[in-house]
């Protein structure tokens, strides 16, 4: 088991992990998700975590007390997730529920109804337009909330600014 206390290295590993996940998504033909993962996971969140590191310490404080309860909760949750994974349909299986319900209609009729070759776009923006409106609202309110917590709405005093 590898344990890192240098948080800078942890952030970098996180970015590499995201980039590898993006490559995995490309391999699974989910290019839209791969775009997002590469730009958000490897790019922006790495920058934000580095900006946070600049405000705090770059080394994790060593924890002497072992937390038995936390370990137990993690183990139980992990076991539940693994046992749920057993029931998942095989990847790409035609009879999987995700491919059975409305998907045939989207794949067969969306070009005639929407006229957009990319089915992902027509599902996301047209068939599921309500969901996407909700998602955009969530992004907006989440950004607003983070900025409120950080207190970023206030203009800094003019002499407090420094260049670069």
């Amino acid at each position: 088991m590898v344990r890192l206390r240098n948080l800078f290295a942890v952030v970098m590993l996180f970015g590499i992990y995201s980039l590898l996940s993006a490559a995995l998504f490309v391999a699974l033909d989910a290019v839209d998700v791969a775009f997002t993962e590469a730009a958000v996971g490897a790019g922006i969140s790495t920058i934000l975590m580095l900006a946070t590191l600049a405000l705090t310490n770059a080394r994790e404080r060593s924890v002497t007390r072992r937390r038995a309860l936390a370990l137990a909760i993690c183990t139980v949750t992990g076991l539940v997730l693994v046992s749920a994974m057993v029931d998942l349909p095989v990847f790409g299986a035609l009879e999987a529920p995700a491919h059975a319900h409305v998907v045939p209609r989207y794949l067969l009729d969306s070009y005639r109804e929407i006229g957009v070759p990319n089915v992902v776009t027509s599902v996301l923006a047209s068939y599921r337009g309500y969901d996407t409106l909700g998602e955009v609202t969530v992004i907006f309110t989440a950004g607003l909330g983070v900025l409120c917590v950080l207190g970023a709405g206030r203009e800094p005093p003019a002499d407090d600014r420094e260049d670069g």
Binding site: L48, A51, T132, A142, L147
Partner: peptide, 26 residues
């Protein structure tokens, strides 16, 4: 449908990019 999708995607892109830059500023 084409027009509507283009406009809502433009709205999504505007909000997402602005929120990302805003978080960076924050």
């Amino acid at each position: 449908q084409h027009l509507g999708i283009m406009l809502v995607e433009l709205g999504v892109g505007t909000t997402v990019s602005a929120v990302m830059i805003g978080l960076f500023y924050g």
